[in-house]
Amino acid sequence: METPKGKTPKMANWGMVELHRNSVNWAKVVEEIVRIEKRVFPKHESLAKSFEDEIKKKNTGLLCSQIGGEVAGYIMYSWPSSLYASITKLAVKENYRRQGQGEALLKAAIEKCKSRNIHRISLHVDPTRIAAMNLYKKLGFQVDTLVERYYSSDRNAYRMYLDFDTD
């Protein structure tokens, strides 16, 4: 795997991995991802209990970044049709944030979707998660609409999308 230019020495030994059921260290990596999932997302938003079921679903992709053999972050996405994909999860461990991990994961998922000739990627984000909002906007996502009570009775979400040229 290649190292992004301009990253700190701490980031020099990292790579992006696409996980499949037959991937090396599958169980260990999924266990690490579930730990991150539990720490990052509120219990009612977490897929920790159903994570393995989620990644077994048809047309679901899972990418993770690893630093020195440790999972630094992951992104899960799905493409229910040949035209449309959805980013369902993106999380980076606290000690690896603000180092380009989230951006690298999102870019990798976008490229995977492009390679499948997907025309639109959408995602939902809590409007109070400013860093996440800024990342999505930086990579070209636009706010589509506010979805009230998306996460809970008192938490909304923006639905955001990224369209690709279909020339």
Rank of each mutant, 00 (worst) to 15 (best):
E31M: 10
E31W: 10
E32L: 11
I33A: 10
V34D: 07
R35E: 15
I36S: 05
I36Y: 10
K38R: 14
K38Q: 13
F41S: 05
F41I: 06
F41R: 02
F41C: 06
K43H: 09
H44E: 15
H44W: 06
E45L: 14
E45F: 13
S46C: 04
D53Q: 09
K56Y: 03
K57I: 03
K58L: 03
N59M: 01
N59W: 01
N59V: 00
N59H: 02
L62Q: 03
L63Y: 06
C64I: 14
C64M: 11
S65K: 00
S65Q: 02
Q66L: 09
G69C: 02
G69F: 03
V71H: 02
V71M: 01
G73D: 05
G73H: 00
Y74H: 03
Y74G: 01
Y74R: 01
I75L: 07
I75Q: 06
M76D: 03
M76P: 00
M76Y: 01
M76I: 10
Y77K: 00
Y77N: 01
S78W: 03
W79I: 01
W79M: 02
S81W: 04
S81R: 08
S81F: 08
S82I: 13
L83K: 10
Y84M: 09
A85C: 14
A85R: 14
S86P: 06
S86A: 13
S86C: 15
T88G: 15
T88L: 15
K89E: 14
K89C: 09
K89M: 13
L90H: 07
A91H: 12
A91Q: 12
A91C: 15
E94G: 03
E94K: 14
E94N: 06
N95A: 04
R97K: 08
R98E: 12
R98D: 08
R98L: 07
G100M: 05
E103N: 11
A104T: 14
L105A: 06
L105T: 07
L105F: 10
K107Q: 15
A108K: 11
A109V: 07
A109Q: 02
A109H: 01
E111Y: 13
E111N: 15
E111F: 08
K112W: 12
K112A: 13
C113S: 13
K114C: 06
S115C: 07
R116C: 06
N117P: 05
N117T: 06
N117I: 02
N117D: 10
I118Y: 00
I118Q: 01
I118M: 04
H119R: 12
H119G: 11
R120G: 03
H124Q: 11
H124T: 13
V125T: 10
V125D: 06
P127N: 09
T128N: 11
T128M: 12
T128F: 09
R129H: 12
R129W: 14
I130D: 09
I130M: 08
I130H: 12
A131Q: 09
